[in-house]
């Protein structure tokens, strides 16, 4: 399971690093032009760390490694938020040996709660939560409706995408964009975008696994 998790995390890392410029330019519009730089720096470090992880490292261990690395390399708002998310995910993954639909739902739920606890934001404030939470809910809904893991992830992805669109229509009340007031209207949130990108990478990863494996 370790190499599978490593591969999944690498897919996430790659996706973020590939979109460094996009995320930075989104942050330039309503923030301080560093989100992509921060996230790419963090996930580059994560990539190095998890590749070097001992083969016996379990899912929880890899998630913790990711969380700690993000916390100590990303900085800004997204560092503690995503870092906490992965730390909580690690705690929720303790003892888990496969990443099935139920395990993912539990881990995701914990991660989401971590972001809320750390950032004290809720949906509708133009943050990563506006992608992350509806995506999580769609995932759980799809799972309930007996959709497959990949199908559920795809539904979640769609919801995250809609969440990004939604962030364009609202004024930020959390994070740096909140200082802009009305001027934040019309712009999509960088953190919501990075959340979507991670999810999209994960979805594609599971999709490919299903096909290829």
């Amino acid at each position: 399971m370790s190499s599978f998790t490593v591969a999944a995390l690498e897919a996430v890392a790659d996706r973020i690093i590939q979109h460094k410029e996009l995320l930075t330019s989104l942050d330039a519009a309503i923030g301080d032009a560093d989100h992509g730089i921060n996230m790419a720096r963090g996930f580059e470090a994560v990539r190095v760390k998890i590749r070097a992880a001992a083969p016996e490292t379990d899912i929880s261990g890899l998630l913790k490694m990711t969380g700690m690395t993000l916390i100590s390399t990303v900085g800004g708002a997204s560092g503690p938020l995503y870092g906490t998310a992965f730390m909580r995910a690690a705690a929720a993954a303790q003892g888990k040996e496969t990443l099935d639909q139920e395990a993912i739902a539990q881990i995701w739920s914990a991660a989401l709660q971590g972001i809320k606890d750390r950032g004290k934001a809720s949906r509708g404030e133009k943050t990563m939560l506006d992608a992350m939470e509806p995506a999580y809910e769609a995932f759980v809904e799809a799972a309930k409706a007996e959709k497959s893991l990949v199908e559920s992830l795809e539904v979640a992805c769609e919801a995250a995408k809609e969440g990004i669109e939604f962030t364009k229509t609202i004024i930020a009340t959390k994070g740096r964009a909140s200082y802009l007031g009305e001027r934040s209207l019309g712009h999509q949130d960088p953190g919501a975008t990075s959340s979507y990108l991670m999810l999209a990478a994960l979805t594609e990863f599971f999709h490919n696994q299903q096909l290829g494996a």
Binding site: I37, S72, V74, A77
Partner: peptide, 12 residues
């Protein structure tokens, strides 16, 4: 000192 315009990380 964090990265440029980026809050430093907790470990620092």
């Amino acid at each position: 000192a964090g990265a440029v315009f980026t809050s430093p990380t907790p470990d620092q």
